[in-house]
Design a binder for these strands. Structure first.
Lengths: 287, 287
DNA sequence: CAAAAAACATTCGTTAGATCAATGAATTTG
DNA sequence: CAAATTCATTGATCTAACGAATGTTTTTTG
């Protein structure tokens, strides 16, 4: 029985992210020829082709995607195991803020694994809107806030980009309505603004049906067919669906989330940010 | 960042099972010196000692146990990933029987991973008591049955051994009662017989309070404090507890489960048995 | 307590394969 | 079609995994 070296899998993940052997090599500190050889060997072990070319990019085959899931899990486990031993544990309390949509989707799992990896760090999480969180950071209430950022935003470190989609309740077809009943995120939320911009651009009339900044509330509202909203694919849960037809007619942009730090250094905070970043990176692959 | 080679971890698991470097080497087809070197390197990577000697055996340290959990998960993932690609898929329908206690505890997860690994095989599971299952096998109704076996049992392949314990509902102290109210497994169940034998040997009087072969029913009964029973540690779920005091006074033996096959060869059946065996092996390590 | 046995550590020679630097081939782009 | 980009290949190097044989330590036994 052969083994899948996590080292190889890490390289594999890097390729699936960058779409390029060379770029992947840089990410994992190997030469392009090494990457090439590793993938050749990996394909040999699993016995299938993992990549196919799309223009100049390397895209995963069906089998490649299958391996991707296992690879992400194994790498995560591997890193978690190693972290569990490295004694240079940082300690301290940190207070972070995050926008509700991301927090609800990612924080349960992230907090679970982080507290295992760094039992000496106590994390307090507050959720709110980007605007309020930034103000809170300025007032010194947070060590870091995770907020949506517009491409140019200075002093925000980009963590993840998600394609936005129109999302509604399963079994509802509100996108045939005119004006379109919009279940919007709160005032100031960039997702809301992108939704309105997309609708305006394509001359679609709209009616504000509902507004909230709470992800759980939004979900139940959508399920009941009170409106449609915009969000990344991972927002879709049981009872929701992506409205492909509306995506085609009124294409949306991308949502970007980043981290903004309180001035000064803070090892505990950096450990948490690194951990979250890793998680966001790996879970983005499934998409 | 270093990587934990699944190959090393497999060796590590073999040691934790056998308690010996040399024996572990045979299991994984390596020489003793290789095993020694691998473990030296593994300890180097995680930065802690994994073993300590207990007499002539090698027992895990606290850190060793911590690694054990990760190792079992990683090896399982690794093997599952590889199986997902090996095209020599067997196909067919198989009918298996299993005693209720084991089925409820292990089959949900086993069936999940097995159907992923061998999508061409359809498994039908029936639960009952060992006696009935063996009769069913003789009548040709099953391709294999998973039943408890007494050490000597011929033509039963041993799969796993579990230490039995006295188990009762949390918050109940029925073991102070005399006679002891026994929530027994059904007539003919070896666990039941071992319970009664242990009680008789230590002159403890007993009253049969309840009897069933259904694990779920047993659980709710115990929680309500109607009696105490005997089972392996993994039987303990939320609301149950091992009664250490009674274990000390009336020590129990071990439960053995094995597989008995219908005559003739059957690749699909063998694949399932191998898969189950692997699962039982790995999950036994946690204990 | 001495001798034998058991089990792991160590040493050494061998070798597979992981890596890199450099070059070649193929494909896309302008 | 030329330039650029990207991956494959080649050849050299070197690490480390491995097995065989031997040494060391500990346990067991007589």
């Amino acid at each position: 029985m052969y083994s899948l070296d996590p080292d190889f899998l890490r390289t594999f993940l890097a390729i699936s992210e960058t779409g390029s052997f060379g770029a992947a090599g840089e990410k994992v500190n190997k030469t392009q020829s090494t990457v090439s050889a590793q993938m050749k060997r990996l394909e040999e072990i699993v016995g299938v082709n993992l990549f196919e070319k799309e223009g100049r990019r390397n895209i995963l085959t069906v089998e490649g995607h299958k391996l991707l899931e296992y690879a992400a899990s194994m790498v995560r486990l591997n890193d978690e195991a190693l972290h569990a031993f490295r004694p240079p544990e940082v300690t301290g309390n940190i207070k972070v803020g995050a926008i509700d949509e991301y927090a609800q989707a990612f924080f349960p799992e992230v907090l679970d694994s982080f507290t295992k990896a760094q039992p000496g760090v106590l994390v307090s999480v507050t959720t709110s809107t980007s605007t309020i969180l930034k103000a809170g950071l300025a007032a010194g209430e947070f060590d870091a806030v995770f907020v949506s950022c517009h491409s140019g935003d200075a002093d925000i470190e980009l963590l993840r980009i998600d394609q936005l989609h129109w999302i509604g309740g399963e079994g509802h077809n509100l996108h045939y309505n005119d004006p379109l009943p919009l279940a919007a995120w709160s005032e100031g939320c960039s997702w809301r603004e992108m939704a309105q911009a997309a609708l305006a651009k394509h001359g679609r009339s709209v009616r504000l049906a509902f507004s909230t900044s709470n992800a759980a509330l939004m979900t139940t509202t959508l399920k009941r067919g009170l409106g449609v909203t915009v969000a990344p694919r991972w927002f879709v849960s049981e009872g929701l669906r992506v409205i492909e037809e509306l995506d085609a007619k009124c294409p949306l942009g991308r949502a970007e989330i980043g981290v903004k730090r309180k001035p000064g250094t803070n090892p505990a905070r950096e450990a948490f940010i690194a951990h979250l970043q890793q998680h966001l990176r790996l879970s983005a692959l499934a998409a």
